[in-house]
Amino acid sequence: MAASSPRHLVSLAAAVAVAALMAQSAAAAGFYERFDVVGARDHVKVISDDGKSQQVALTLDRSSGSGFNSKDTYLFGEFSVQMKLVGGNSAGTVTSFYLSSGEGDGHDEIDIEFMGNLSGDPYVMNTNVWASGDGKKEHQFYLWFDPTADFHTYKIIWNPQNIIFQVDDVPVRTFKKYDDLPYPENKPMRLHATLWDGSYWATRHGDVKIDWSGAPFTVSYKGYSANACVNNNPSGGWSSSKCPEGTSGWIHTQLDAAGLGTVAWAEKNYMSYNYCADGWRFPQGFPAECYRK
Score class of each variant (00 low, 15 high):
Gly51Asn: 06
Ser96Asp: 09
Thr95Leu: 07
Lys293Thr: 15
Val18Gly: 12
Ser225Trp: 08
Val170Ser: 11
Asp72Ala: 10
Val18His: 12
Asp150Tyr: 09
Ser96Glu: 09
Ala257Gln: 10
His252Asp: 15
Arg41Met: 09
Gly237Met: 04
Glu289Leu: 09
Val38Met: 10
Leu9His: 09
Glu78Lys: 13
Gly236Arg: 07
Gly106Leu: 11
Thr247Phe: 04
Cys276Arg: 04
Gly77Ser: 03
Leu60Thr: 03
Asp146Gln: 05
Trp144Arg: 00
Asp146Phe: 05
Tyr123Glu: 12
Ser53Lys: 08
Asp197Tyr: 07
Trp144Ser: 08
Cys290His: 04
Pro182Cys: 05
Gly77Thr: 00
Gln82Ile: 09
Ile156Glu: 00
Tyr224Arg: 11
Gly223Leu: 02
Ala2Trp: 05
Phe151His: 08
Gly214Tyr: 08
Asp36His: 13
Glu289Pro: 02
Tyr98Trp: 06
Met125Pro: 06
Val86Cys: 01
Gly279Gln: 13
Val46Ile: 10
Ser213Val: 06
Phe175Cys: 03
Lys52Met: 11
Tyr32Cys: 09
Met115Glu: 13
Ala266Ser: 13
Gln55Ile: 04
Pro216Lys: 02
Gly102Val: 04
Gly67Phe: 01
Asp50Ile: 10
Val44Tyr: 05
Tyr183Arg: 05
Tyr178Leu: 09
Val44Trp: 01
Tyr123His: 07
Gly102Phe: 08
Thr247Tyr: 05
Trp265Ser: 10
Gly246Ala: 04
Asp150Thr: 14
Ile110Thr: 02
Asp256Thr: 03
Ala228Tyr: 01
Lys52His: 15
Val56Ile: 13
Gly236Leu: 08
Trp158Leu: 07
Trp238Phe: 12
Phe35Arg: 00
Ser220Glu: 14
Thr247Gly: 02
Val170Pro: 03
Gly30Asn: 09
Gly285Arg: 00
Val86Asp: 01
Asn69Cys: 08
Thr174Gln: 15
Ser235Val: 12
Val94Tyr: 06
Phe145Cys: 07
Val16Cys: 14
Glu33Ser: 12
Glu113Tyr: 01
Asn227Cys: 15
Gly223Ser: 14
His43Trp: 05
Leu99Trp: 02
Pro182His: 05
Ala17Thr: 14
Gly223Asp: 10
Thr127Arg: 01
Met115Pro: 05
Tyr32Leu: 11
Ala15Lys: 13
His152Glu: 02
Ala14Glu: 14
Phe79Asn: 03
Lys209Thr: 14
